[in-house]
């Protein structure tokens, strides 16, 4: 039982990071109809900012939580402006190709700048593992696990609330449901797109800060995050923020459970099998957004 609880805690911790990354993917897709395969690269750069701030500059850890979203959000906005805006009229297929290779360009740039296998980042919170008694047994939980899980989830829900209730969120949602209508109502498409990319990028940056200590900073982080974020987003229906959060948590727990009770090879396969089953069984995800009749 204690072992099972420890496995679940570990799964939820990874799941919370997946969820945060997935929300960014969903926000950008919802507002701009762009499927951002470069999101993993943005998360990796967020983790890199953490490394620079915490290890290189030795600034207090909290500055990473402020700087990473700002910098990565701005970068995402710039990428939208320079690369994706000129091809906005192209079909989805072309845009997806562009974001796939944009992701490669981001992680390659990082690799060339650093040229090391992996950069290690210390945990944000320190302290000895806590032993929680459970009947005759006891399970262990670390301060980092608590911090990452709660921090990432709170950030995710804050993003969700912002998208749902704040002014910027309203304009993005208006744009998502009907571009022409939103334009007629005075929303500038350029502004909303820039905003959505900033918002999505900022979430990616935060996901990077949370992921850095437990995953390390390396180009492989970009690949592992993007597949996990997409699987989580697809499970959630790709357009649902709450779906992305639940999808991320579900993925983290299922992965860790299969690692613990089947095999470590199964862990890598299970996320893809989960994706496959969801796509075939419920192509709109487990939490489909209600769609208008305009199809």
């Amino acid at each position: 039982m204690a072992e099972f609880i420890m496995v679940i805690i570990g799964g939820v911790q990874f799941g919370a990071i997946y969820a945060l990354a997935a929300i960014g993917v969903v926000v950008i897709h919802k507002a701009t109809r762009t499927v951002n395969f470069a999101h993993g690269g943005l998360v990796m750069l967020g983790a890199f900012v953490t490394y620079l701030v915490v290890v290189e500059l030795r600034w207090p850890y909290w500055t990473a939580y402020v700087l990473a979203p700002l910098l990565i959000g701005t970068l995402a906005m710039a990428l939208e402006l320079v690369i994706l805006r000129p091809i906005r009229r192209a079909d989805m297929f072309t845009v997806i190709m562009a974001t796939i290779f944009l992701g490669i360009a981001l992680s390659e740039t990082f690799r060339l700048a650093q040229n090391t296998e992996m950069l290690a980042v210390p945990s944000a919170v320190k302290g000895p593992p806590m032993i929680v008694p459970l009947g005759e047994d006891a399970f262990i939980v670390t301060a980092e696990q608590i911090w990452v899980t709660i921090g990432a989830l709170l950030t995710g829900f804050a993003g969700l609330a912002l998208f749902r209730y704040a002014g910027i969120g309203r304009s993005m949602r208006a744009m998502a449901s009907n571009i022409r209508g939103a334009q007629l109502c005075g929303f500038s498409i350029d502004r909303v797109y820039a905003l959505a990319w900033f918002f999505g990028g900022a979430l990616a940056g935060l996901a990077g800060v949370f992921a850095a200590p437990s995953k390390g900073v390396s180009p492989e982080l970009a690949v592992s995050v993007i597949s996990a974020a997409f699987v989580a987003a697809v499970i959630g229906g790709f357009d649902s923020l709450i779906g992305a959060i639940i999808g991320g948590l579900l993925l983290g727990v299922v992965e860790t459970l299969s690692a613990a009770y089947v095999s470590s090879a199964m862990k890598s396969a299970v996320s893809f099998l989960l994706l496959f089953v969801v796509l075939l069984w419920r192509p709109d995800g487990l939490f489909p957004e209600r769609k208008g009749r305009d199809v």
């Binding site: 496995v7 570990g10 990874f14 437990s214 995953k215 390390g216 390396s218 492989e220 592992s224 992965e255 860790t256 690692a259 613990a260 089947v262 095999s263 470590s264 090879a265 862990k267 890598s268």
Partner: peptide, 9 residues
């Protein structure tokens, strides 16, 4: 596997 980050199992 090479590059593993999760050693649960």
């Amino acid at each position: 596997d090479q590059g593993a980050r999760d050693f649960t199992s």
